[in-house]
């Protein structure tokens, strides 16, 4: 095995990793760093469950080799969760029943953290277009759209205050 030592910055912490170059970021996060909030679904970029932020932009962790991420800032769902309680997006998903089994939820949270920063007042069509990259087999999406709309509202008030 050609294991290599390198450093990743995950949720603002420097993490030493020893892994083969072929190891996917999703696997390094879950297995080496024990950050199991990043879920692995399809492993070919379709389902969106493993979405994380790379320098603030959404990216499929299953389509990146961990070794490529040296000198990048990676944020996982753990890094988006406040020390106490839930983020506005998490709280809204909870209140609006935007999840059932929860498998797709971390990918939806990371995706929309990025999207709502870029577009704080999206239309339902825009939310649905972005949400099309995250497969959910439980909810039928309607409650997720409602939750994202609510979170956007709360986040706008938060920045206005």
């Amino acid at each position: 095995m050609n294991r290599i030592a390198f450093t990743l910055t995950v949720n603002a912490m420097a993490c030493e990793v020893v892994a083969e170059p072929r190891k996917l970021l999703s696997d390094v996060l879950r297995e080496d760093l024990r950050l199991t909030g990043t879920h692995v679904g399809c492993e070919h970029g379709v389902c969106g469950a493993c979405t994380v932020l790379v320098d603030g932009a959404p990216a499929r962790a299953c389509l990146i080799f961990a070794i490529q991420m040296q000198c990048r800032e990676i944020t996982t769902v753990e890094g988006l969760t406040p020390a106490e309680g839930l983020s506005p997006l998490q709280q809204a998903l909870h209140e609006e029943h935007g999840l059932q089994c929860g498998y797709c939820t971390p990918g939806i949270i990371t995706t929309f953290e990025a999207f709502l920063r870029e577009n704080p007042k999206p239309t339902d069509d825009e939310i649905r277009e972005v949400l099309s990259g995250n497969l959910c087999r439980c909810t039928g999406y309607a409650n997720i759209v409602r939750a994202i709309r609510k979170a956007a509202q709360i986040m706008r008030k938060g920045t206005a205050a």
Binding site: G45, T51, V54, P58, R60, I64, T111, V130
Partner: peptide, 9 residues
Amino acid sequence: IGHYALRAR
């Protein structure tokens, strides 16, 4: 092209 996250990369 593809989805939001794929277009970012």
